[in-house]
Design a protein around this nucleic acid. Structure first.
Lengths: 138, 138
DNA sequence: CGGCATCCAAATAGATACTG
DNA sequence: CAGTATCTATTTGGATGCCG
């Protein structure tokens, strides 16, 4: 992605190959529709299963359940079960989740500017013109 | 995600709500297994369909084809068809793709450190101990 | 409330064959 | 080479019911 032409073509190619594999690794761990969303919702203070399901719009209990398990296995969160009555179950972010701050920040900034771009594109194209040319923007 | 306690709880909650929606928007546009990978491969200089399919390991022609179409619709790339003989088809990154550099950089850095963490976890746990406790790491 | 099990529908993706 | 079409296999997800 970087484009400093001081570098040889070979160096540049190698750099991109490394990018390809490290980004693939990242996507493998935190890719998918939900993982980041759940972590953000938890950062917001939501700890209970039902709270999370309300926050993360569109997720079903079944999927939330399995995503939480994966997040736990991968060391992002812990599940805490109280011994009192009634038993309450809370999920908490582990420190490792905070290593994602940079990624979340970058995605958020890009998401904001992308949303703006889409809006500009739609209005500049005028209403009812090529309505089929701007997909994937909810 | 940020944790500056100068902010009121209300401000913090609002901040996280905004995060949730902007990250959702970003994931909606560039989420999924392939889009970022294809863009990175193209940054590496790959422009032809078959080249891309070789670079982006695991993608099928059918999926690559449809992903390229979406990337084109969303303004990340252009498809250029030469008029010569034989007809050659090349895909090129548009400037808008470069707005993703920050995201790609963050993901790449995180991917690298995550890979290291996984390796440490595996070796410190010792071989053949809880081999079922570290999933999702290819 | 916080799940898991089951069943079923829908979306996604691979394989293969075929075309300009 | 650069795809498309078709069929099928796999994955994914929703709905429901049950249980501690």
């Amino acid at each position: 992605m970087k484009k400093e032409n001081r570098k040889s073509a070979k160096e540049f190619t190698e750099e991109c190959t490394a990018l390809l594999s490290s980004v693939a690794d990242a996507l493998y761990a935190i890719g998918g529709k939900w993982k980041l969303m759940i972590i953000i919702a938890m950062a917001r203070g939501n700890k209970r299963f039902t709270e999370l399901q309300k926050q993360v719009t569109g997720i079903s209990a079944r999927v939330l359940s399995s995503e939480l398990k994966e997040l736990e296995l991968n060391g992002f969160i812990v599940k805490k079960v109280s011994v009192g009555y009634p038993v309450t179950i809370e999920y908490e972010l582990l420190p490792y989740s905070h290593t994602l701050e940079e990624v979340v920040g970058a995605l958020s900034r890009w998401g904001i500017q992308h949303r703006d771009k889409i809006r500009r594109d739609m209005t500049s194209a005028g209403p009812s013109e090529k309505p089929n040319k701007l997909p994937k923007v909810k």
